[in-house]
């Protein structure tokens, strides 16, 4: 059975799931960042920022554990950063989903290829 794109029905099913995952990931990430951003504006909106000098970010905003503990403490900047981490995690989740889909199709070469990409992304997100 084939479809409008000519792809096998099993692949089309995976494409629908991948599309949904990407859409949900972006929406959730944007919603979290928006909530954090509104809280940030109400707390710090009247401060005068200076982005012309690079100082980096405190540990709370530059590590996964810092962002999570900051969010639990309801720190607005950490909630924005959680939204950004969720956004970065969306393509990572997409690679994981395609890996599983290739495994179901017993397409081991592409399971290996997806695993390499997933390993590189995980390394970047966790170790940096």
């Amino acid at each position: 059975m084939t479809t409008a794109s000519g792809h096998p029905a099993s692949e089309e099913h995976v494409e629908q799931m991948v599309g949904n995952l990407l859409r949900i990931g972006v929406l959730v990430a944007a919603a979290v960042a928006l909530v954090g951003g509104i809280a940030f504006m109400t707390h710090h909106g009247s401060l005068v920022p200076d982005h012309s000098v690079f100082r980096g970010q405190p540990a709370m905003l530059s590590s996964l554990s810092g962002v999570i503990s900051g969010t639990l403490a309801l720190e607005p900047a950490a909630i924005v950063q959680l939204g950004i981490v969720l956004l970065i995690a969306t393509p990572v989740a997409r690679v994981l989903l395609t890996l599983v889909a290739f495994a179901v199709q017993r397409d081991w070469m592409y399971v290996l290829i997806s695993a390499i990409v997933l390993a590189l992304l995980t390394y970047s997100l966790i170790v940096g």
Partner: peptide
């Protein structure tokens, strides 16, 4: 992110 390049106040808008 780990290097502190991502400023939430800037990245959000």
């Amino acid at each position: 992110l780990h290097r502190g390049y991502i400023d939430p106040g800037l990245a959000f808008p």
